[in-house]
Amino acid sequence: MTNVVRKTDTEEKSMPVLRRKSHFVSFFSDLIRSKTGLAGFFIICLLFVIGIIGFLIVPFNPMDTETAQKLLPPHTEGHLMGTDQLGRDVFSRVILGTRVSLTIGIVTVVLAGVIGTVIGVLAGFFRGWLDMVLMRIVDVQLSFPFILLVLVVNAVLGSGLKNIIISLIIAGWVVFARVVRSEVLAIREKEFIIACVATGVSGWEIMVKHILPNLFTPIIVLASLQVANFIIAEASVSFLGFGVQPPQPAWGNMLNEGKDYIFNAWWMITFPGLAIVITALGINLFGDWLRDELDHDL
């Protein structure tokens, strides 16, 4: 009899234990294995780089009007994507528009996410009249088309970057509230929550220490997908003449200006349009992968 036997005597020590690789390492090794997730991830990284250092790489000042150079097609006189009706460089404007779109997307998602989560958790945890009241507000708001609501709020507040963010938050928190509430309803029935109650943990502690951490996954997934929605919404609103105002470059208002020249200067509308499509696609690809990944983990 050798050490094989002795090892089995101390029962748990000899057992191989599923030791997970650190979250970080396994996250990236999984990402590399997924083609679509990786593509989305690259697009997002690229957008961030452009958003942060874009102003360093633009060949022209995007605000500079040069009427002599107006409506130049792509690849003329150093204008990679041509110029618009005022002779501004479309490439530079698309690059700088990235920052506007990302800022709006991220800021609105964070704030709408926080507000929606707080309201969703309160409604789901306390139930009763509070839930009733909050969820009817959500219902009413969800029965308005999202864009219409953003437009109405924006019309009241006035245009500008800050106001478009506020309007998007006001229109956007409900989605978070609804999803979070239903998650909370599911989690609060789980045995580990009942176990907390049986141990004597107070309501607030259960909410903050046990329910909130378990909401992390669904919120992150929802948020990642909502970023794309908010960016598209901002573009739509700016396209309609609200939102970010020219001359400040944003993809939406570039489309707005370009639509009048759609037959004689296709580049004015094509390149900002492509930017929106690629951004939304990248974020959605990554978000979808993230959902599968995080679902799998739990």
Binding site: V5, S14, P16, L18
Partner: peptide, 22 residues
């Protein structure tokens, strides 16, 4: 002990790490 996962089987006899006669 416990039933080992399929990716962590002991070498040789897969019951050897729990077996009193190993």
């Amino acid at each position: 002990g416990n039933v080992p996962g399929l990716n962590e089987l002991p070498l040789g006899c897969s019951f050897s790490n729990r077996c009193p006669m190993a």
